[in-house]
């Protein structure tokens, strides 16, 4: 397969760890939902971090004049922007649902 032009492509920042998608009853210890959501958020932030450092490297190249193609930077910066917004949106939704649950009358 031919590698894409941009330095790195943004893979889905929200990827659930395998425990969430595992078949029920496979391993009861890894079925704890609380831990899994934390893992998902950590994975998302790690992916976001790598995407942002790729953009940083390209913007450094742009500043030093080593950038070979302006579209590489624009694509990477836009992908990082969208990935950041997506991660923030998911985080906001998660906090919102947590608050809804906490406000629930028992």
């Amino acid at each position: 397969m031919i590698p894409p032009i941009s330095a790195a492509t943004v893979s889905s920042p929200i990827s659930l760890p395998s425990a969430v998608t595992a078949t029920p009853g496979a391993d009861p210890a890894s079925q704890e939902r609380g831990v899994d959501f934390g893992k998902a958020v950590t994975n998302a932030l790690e992916n976001l971090q790598s995407s942002q450092s790729a953009t940083d490297a390209l913007s450094e190249k742009a500043a030093t004049g080593d950038l070979k193609a302006i579209e590489d930077y624009m694509v990477m910066a836009t992908e990082t922007q969208l990935a950041t917004q997506l991660t923030v949106a998911v985080r906001n939704k998660a906090v919102e649902s947590f608050n809804d649950i906490m406000r629930m009358q028992i």
Binding site: I5, S6, V10, S11, E71, M74, V75, A83
Partner: peptide
């Protein structure tokens, strides 16, 4: 692998070709 924002990198590759 299908990237999340695939169309952005696809159009970027097109821009690269026409820049060349």
């Amino acid at each position: 692998m299908s990237a999340l924002f695939n169309s952005l990198s696809i159009t970027g590759s097109g821009m690269g070709v026409y820049k060349t």
